[in-house]
Amino acid sequence: MAPSQKGFLFDPNRCLGCRACVMACAAGKNLPPGIYLRHVEMQEFRQGPRIMKFFLSTSCNHCVNPECLRLCPERAFRKRQDGIVMHDLSKCNGCGTCTRGCPFEAPMVNPTTGKAVKCDLCYDRLDEGEMPFCVAACPVQALRQIDIWHLKAHAPDAVKRLHGVLKLQVTQPSIRYLSLKPGKQVLRHAGRKGDEDENEDLQ
């Protein structure tokens, strides 16, 4: 089998912050209210005289060196040949070690089952040639599913991190970003009615 590592490519210049990815994932995976496997947050930083703002959509990054796999006392995590990090519910006892150990805080404990839950990159859909729910739902194609080892052919200018992303990437997350282009981000109108409430719900 050719070396493969499935992951995401995110374009911060396109993301509208609409959270369609978050909702599609929650609906597709039939998650209980308040549990989301993907998060969208606005990032803000100063670059010289300019203030840069953009949205960042994150989930499990299917790391090359997954901390969840190392730390889980029940050996409930495994990594497939295509790089997807899988979680075995039957082995999980809900101890929460993975939720505390993951630098990206990707796994969450599902209060209804008492067991951890995390993004599985919709492997069943991928195996059938379809895209993950989050990728398929993105109206502006800001989120794409890629093979990290063969990325150069598709996005030669992709970078490993953006502002707001962990600087020390010991786990080698399988996500790449397109570079930020000042002034290209399409942001929803700030302070729009309902934004505050929605943000609080999603956090």
Binding site: N65, L69, R70, R75, V170, Q172
Partner: peptide
């Protein structure tokens, strides 16, 4: 698998 992940953490942190 655990020892392998530890070796990779040691490698990355050692480099860093």
């Amino acid at each position: 698998h655990q020892s392998f992940q530890e070796a990779k953490v040691a490698l990355e942190l050692g480099k860093t």
